[in-house]
Design a protein around this nucleic acid. Structure first.
Length: 266
DNA sequence: ACATTGACCTGAGAGC
DNA sequence: TGCTCTCAGGTCAATG
């Protein structure tokens, strides 16, 4: 789930549930997701309250009233749940925050591939972790997109998914973008025309906006979207042809073989 | 530089 | 039913 649109949905959820309530307790049920010592996390959170949120790529940041930030990354299966009674705690909750209004915020992750940390500065975190610019920020424009890809050697899907190049796109949304523009994921970046790049950029913005608008729930996406049809029995929503699964960059990419022609030499 | 593979984790679903 | 295999929306390190 957690690519940019999903994390944006988490951010809004966090904003609408967890701000301006005093944190009374912190419970860590899995050490594996922690990037810091449990005691440091506890001491950084208890007694404070959240005042706002930020997102960069697939990372969510929650500002505390002492200037520090809680950093959350959701791996392949992470989620957030705000709930009241502890006897109704969600399955796979790895990290819990209790508020003075009696409610709790749970970070859940069936697969423990996520990351929870306490940091002092978001910009330093982004820089220190080598993250590229957020692809859905106001500053990210076509000129920057072109510039980032200008000397890129590999395949377009790999480039879109490379968080150090640009942050936010993962396996599902790279497939969706390339499906919408009718470009095969193995196409070399260097073989794309200026027009192709502009189309990819525009489509990326449109796909992300649409996904965010629908709270990253594929079942609510427009009929023309690939994402709800991803999977073994999937059929192209445009032409009805069976979708194909191809390995690209070590991941399963789903394509419409009619609309996304195999590039020559691949 | 870039592609590929395996590892990290665990659960769900398919097939036997 | 129970076992085994494969796969899953992410990232990192090692290898070619």
């Amino acid at each position: 789930m957690p690519e940019l649109p999903d994390v944006e949905a988490f951010r809004r959820y966090f904003e609408s549930t967890a701000l301006y309530q005093r944190i009374t307790d912190v419970e860590i049920r899995s050490q594996q997701i922690l990037e810091t010592k449990p005691e440091r996390l506890r001491q950084g959170l208890v007694g404070r309250q959240f005042e706002g949120t930020w997102r960069h790529g697939k990372h969510l940041f929650a500002a505390l009233d002492n200037g520090c930030w809680l950093e959350l990354h959701f791996g392949m299966s992470g989620n957030l749940t705000y709930f009241k009674k502890m006897d109704q705690d969600p399955e796979y909750d790895r990290f819990l925050i209790a508020f003075d209004n009696g409610y709790h915020l749970a970070y859940t992750a069936p697969r423990k591939l996520g990351e929870v940390d306490l940091i002092e500065d978001v910009d330093a975190y982004v820089e220190g972790n080598g993250l590229g610019p957020d692809v859905y920020s106001d500053e990210f424009d076509l000129a920057q997109f072109r510039s980032l890809l200008s000397d890129r050697r590999g395949m377009i899907k790999s480039a879109l998914m490379d968080q150090s190049l640009m942050a936010g796109i993962g396996n599902v949304y790279s497939d969706e973008i390339l499906f919408q523009v009718g470009i095969h994921p193995r196409t070399k970046v260097q073989d794309l025309s200026d027009h192709d790049l502009a189309s990819i950029f525009d489509t990326m913005q449109e796909v992300l906006a649409t996904a965010i608008e629908h709270q990253a729930r594929p079942t609510d996406y427009p009929d023309t979207y690939l994402t709800p049809h991803r999977g073994q029995e999937g059929v192209c929503p445009e032409c009805g042809v069976s979708l194909e699964r191809v390995k690209v960059a070590g991941r399963s990419a789903y394509i419409c073989p009619e609309r996304q022609r195999q590039p020559k030499g691949a």
